[in-house]
Design a protein around this nucleic acid. Structure first.
Lengths: 324, 324
DNA sequence: ACGCATGCTGCAAGCGATTGCATTCACCGT
DNA sequence: ACGGTGAATGCAATCGCTTGCAGCATGCGT
C-alpha cells in the first residue's frame, strides 16, 4: 500500500504537508497542494482509515439500525442513508434489531467505540435509555421523537389527517384503521391525528398488526365485521394481504370498500398504482438522518433538532364515495 | 477510554501480557490470565479496533453487497450473515449495488482497504473482474459461481427440477416459467434444470421480469395467453402480483392453474401458506458465505470452495392436477 | 534597514495496540 | 551442583497518520 510518506517523497515535501494538503487544503500553498494532489493521484493513494482513526478518534463509520429488513419500507430509507454517508466518505453499518429493545441496547454497547454515531430507525428502547446513549455518542432517531435527541420524523400523523379528511369528504362516516405493530411509537399518534381530523366519523381502531401479508388477510375479515365503508392500513405489506383477501371475497375497491394505505409502496417492488396512499419521503428521511448525524459528529454536541418531513396524499382510484 | 495500559496496571503486569492474555490466551499462565481478565472486566475494557487494525492490518469489518433491499429475499440472507459476523466479533457493512456492475466495482475500489473481505450476493460484475477482486481481497460470492472464487449457491436449479417433476407427476404438460431479472446468473440455470427435469413437457419461458408486484400482474396475462396449466414464478414478489391478477380475474389455484414459486416467502412478511414453493435456506446461505469469508480472512488464501445448499420442495395446495 | 507579523513547511511526539526478541526463572537430567 | 530447556513475561519497535510547535522565509510598517 502506498502511504503518506510515499506521496511525500513523490511530491518532494514532508509527510505532514501531504497530510495537510489532503485534509486541510487551505493550510498549504496553492502550488504545493496541486503538486501533492498530483502525486497522490499518480500513486493511487488512499487514506488508511485505521491510522487516521487512531489519532483523530473518528472512524468514518456510522451505525444505522432498523427493526427489520423484511419490511420493504426501510429499503429506500437505507438507500438514502447510504447515499448521504457515501457523500461524506463514511460507511454505514446496517444492523437489524428485530424490534427488540435488548438487541438495540446490546448494539449501542457493542458499537459505541467503533462508530462515530448512531442513526436509529423507529427505535423501541425507552426514551431515557436513548437519551443516555445520546449523551455518549451522537444519535439521531428516525420516526421517533425523544426529548433532547435529534430526530427526523415523517409526518404521517398529518398524512393520516389528510387521508381522513379525504375519506370524510367523500362521505364516509365509519372508517377502520388497521394499526401498526405493537409498541410502535407512531401508531397512537397516527390514530389520534386521524380521529382529530374526522370528528364526525366513527373510527374503528383494529390491531395491532405486524407488517405481514397474513396479518392483512386476517384484518380483512375484521374490517368487514365492523361494517366500515373505508379502511386505512398502517403499512403496505398489511395492505397487500388485505387486498388479497378482499379480492378473493369478490369485494373491490372503491365499490365495496374504500382502501387507503399510510405508506407508499412504490419503492418496495409492491407498487400499487391504483391505491390511495401517502407518499412517504423515505429516502429523504434516511438521508436527513445521516446528514444530521454527521453534523453532530463533526461539530460536536449541539442542541437537538427535530425535523418533520411532510407527506403527500396520493388520491387514487381505490377510494370513492361509499355505496348507498 | 480505558486502554491496555490501564488494565496492565490494574492487573500488575505489562501491556504486552494483557494483549496476549486477551488475544492469545494460551501464551500466558493460567494465573495471569484470570488476573488480567478480571482486571479487564472490572475496568470495562474494550479493544480499540483502530489501533489493532493499524498493526494487524485487519479491520474486523466485512462488506456485504446485495443488489437491492427492496427484495425481501435478502432480509434473511443479511440476518444470517450478520449473525455469523457478530459471532466472530466482526461488523457488516451492507452495501446496495442496485444490480449495477459499475456500482459493484466502485464499491470494491472504495472499500478494499477498509474491510477484511467481501461477500457479494448475486454479483453482476463480469467473472474476470470478480476473480480480479478475489486476487486482492478475500471474496465469497453468493448465488453465483465464478472459477477460482469461493461461493455459496442455493441449489434452486435442483429445486426447479423437483418442482417440474412434481408438476409433471400431477399430469401437467405445459408449464410456464416466469423468469427472473435480466442478467441473472441463476435464471438460465434454473430454466435448463427445469427443462431437463420435464423432457415430456413444453416449458414456456416468459420474462425477464424484475422482482416486482407489477411485473407479476403483467405476467399473469402472459401466462394465460400461453395456455399453460401450471406456472412457476422466479421470485416471491412476482408471485404476489401474479396471484393478485389471477384472483381478480376469478382464476384460482389449483383449479384453473397450478401455481408454484421458486423461492420461499415465509421470511419476508409475505408468507403464503398455501403456495407450493421451494424452501430456500437463505439465512443459512448468508451465514455460510460469511463463515467462509472469515476462514479466508484468517487462514490466508486457500483453494476456492463451492458450497451448494439444497432446497426443499414444499408441496402445498396451490398445485394439483390440471383441469381436464 | 531593522524588527515583527504572517504564511508555509518540517520535525517529532504521540494515538493504542501487537509482536519479535531478550530476559528471567523454575525445573530437569546427569 | 550446573548447564540446558522451555515457559512466561517485559522491552521496545512498529503500524500510518495527525498536529502542536518551531523554524524559516517573505513582506510589511516605520
Amino acid at each position: 500500500m502506498t502511504k503518506l510518506e510515499d506521496v511525500a517523497e513523490e511530491a518532494g515535501v514532508s509527510a505532514s504537508t501531504v497530510s495537510r494538503a489532503l485534509s486541510r487544503p487551505d493550510m498549504v500553498s496553492e502550488a504545493t497542494r496541486t503538486r501533492v494532489l498530483d502525486a497522490a493521484e499518480r500513486l493511487g493513494y488512499r487514506h488508511n482509515q485505521a491510522a487516521r482513526a487512531l489519532v483523530t478518534g473518528r472512524t468514518g463509520l456510522l451505525a444505522f439500525s432498523v427493526p427489520s429488513l423484511a419490511n420493504p419500507y426501510y429499503a429506500p430509507v437505507i438507500a438514502g442513508a447510504q447515499a448521504a454517508a457515501e457523500e461524506a466518505g463514511c460507511e454505514l453499518i446496517v444492523v437489524v434489531t428485530d424490534g427488540s429493545a435488548e438487541r438495540e441496547q446490546a448494539l449501542y454497547a457493542r458499537l459505541s467505540e467503533r462508530v462515530d454515531g448512531f442513526a436509529a430507525a423507529a427505535p423501541v428502547s425507552a426514551g431515557t435509555q436513548l437519551s443516555q446513549v445520546a449523551r455518549k455518542r451522537p444519535l439521531v432517531t428516525l420516526n421517533r421523537r425523544v426529548r433532547g435527541v435529534s430526530s427526523v420524523v415523517v409526518d404521517t400523523p398529518a398524512g393520516m389527517g389528510a387521508l381522513g379528511g379525504h375519506l370524510a369528504g367523500l362521505g364516509h362516516r365509519r372508517i377502520a384503521y388497521l394499526g401498526g405493530p405493537d409498541g410502535s411509537w407512531l401508531d397512537p399518534r397516527r390514530l389520534s391525528a386521524l380521529r382529530e381530523a374526522v370528528p364526525d366519523c366513527e373510527v374503528a381502531a383494529l390491531g395491532p398488526y405486524p407488517p405481514e401479508f397474513e396479518a392483512g388477510v386476517r384484518a380483512a375479515d375484521a374490517v368487514l365485521d365492523t361494517g366500515c365503508t373505508a379502511v386505512i392500513a398502517y403499512s403496505s405489506t398489511l395492505l397487500i394481504g388485505l387486498l388479497h383477501r378482499l379480492t378473493l371475497l369478490g369485494k373491490s375497491a372503491p365499490h365495496d370498500l374504500s382502501l387507503a394505505c399510510a405508506d407508499d409502496l412504490s419503492a418496495s417492488g409492491l407498487a400499487m398504482p391504483e391505491v390511495t396512499a401517502l407518499h412517504v419521503p423515505a429516502a429523504e428521511a434516511g438521508r436527513r438522518a445521516v446528514q444530521r448525524l454527521l453534523e453532530t459528529v463533526t461539530s460536536g454536541p449541539t442542541a437537538a433538532t427535530h425535523q418533520l418531513l411532510p407527506v403527500e396524499l396520493l388520491t387514487r382510484a381505490s377510494t370513492g364515495r361509499p355505496a348507498a
